[in-house]
């Protein structure tokens, strides 16, 4: 579903992604983990071309994302993206946040967009928040609205860039539950996360990055109990022993 081939990217002299290749089959969930500055966020942002690449190729559902001939607006309809800082539209209600793109981009009628939007918000436990503005919602609620907003475009792929990092601890669970549910429904997902327990539980594969490179790829059980590389062992000993 997602195919990343030999992607390189640098900011000036600083190499943020070095020869990164990764395949994510349909319905698989991949966690990107690693120390900060490893290039995880940059990598996930290249998958929907929020971040340009220097060379290499990324395809999603067979469509080459960084090809100049590709209509990127159309390609992005297939790729939901959830940000660390939610990025909800503050002047729109929760429901309007979810319906604006289906209406303005897909040309859905207000009725159709609202019907679908309400279904999504209800399924994410936000049935009583249709008319609430983002400033009136908790972080966890805002992030669930952001997930509903992305799902409203009916994407085949969902990308999560540290979806729980900006949340108070007690709100992490509700957002992880929402992602867990998507995994169960067979959504193809890439998640940048620091929630190791969560990664272990729902992911099909762990991709460990450091210094702009993929250092290790493994099944969760293997990775968390017996990683091959010293770099991954060092990282795990730091994040798991506290």
């Amino acid at each position: 579903m997602i195919s990343i081939k030999n992607v390189n990217k640098s900011f000036g002299a600083h190499h943020v992604l070095t020869d990164v290749s990764l395949e994510v089959p349909k319905s698989n969930v991949v966690a990107l983990i690693g120390p900060s500055g490893a290039g995880k966020s940059t990598l996930i942002r290249t998958i929907n071309a929020l971040e340009p690449i220097d060379n290499g190729e990324i395809t999603v559902d067979g469509i080459s994302i960084h090809d100049k001939k590709t209509d990127i607006n159309k390609a992005r309809l297939n790729i939901g993206f959830v940000f660390q800082s939610f990025n909800l539209f503050p002047f729109l209600t929760a429901l309007e946040n979810v319906t604006i793109s289906p209406m303005k981009v897909k040309g859905l009628s207000k009725e159709a967009a609202e019907k679908r939007g309400k279904e999504l918000l209800i399924s994410l436990g936000l049935g009583d928040k249709f008319d609430a503005y983002p400033s009136r919602l908790s972080g966890g609620q805002q992030q669930r609205v952001a997930i509903a907003r992305a799902l409203a475009m009916d994407p085949q792929v969902m990308l999560f860039d540290e979806p729980t990092s900006a949340l108070d601890p007690e709100m992490v669970t509700e957002v992880l539950d929402a992602i867990r549910k998507l995994a169960k429904d067979g959504m193809t997902m890439v998640v940048v996360t620091h929630e190791m327990g969560f990664a272990k539980e729902i992911c099909d594969e762990i991709v460990f990055m450091a210094e702009g490179k993929i250092v290790e790829r493994a099944a969760p059980d293997k990775f968390f109990t017996n990683p091959d590389t010293q770099r991954a062992q060092d990282f795990l000993s730091k994040v798991l022993n506290h």
């Binding site: 929907n48 929020l50 607006n73 159309k74 992005r76 309809l77 790729i79 939901g80 993206f81 940000f83 800082s85 990025n87 909800l88 539209f89 604006i100 793109s101 303005k104 981009v105 897909k106 952001a146 907003r149 992305a150 475009m153």
Partner: peptide
């Protein structure tokens, strides 16, 4: 904030 444009673009808006 820059994130507003990014969010809009990631939803397929031109």
């Amino acid at each position: 904030p820059k994130g507003q444009m990014e969010a809009a673009r990631s939803l397929g808006m031109s």
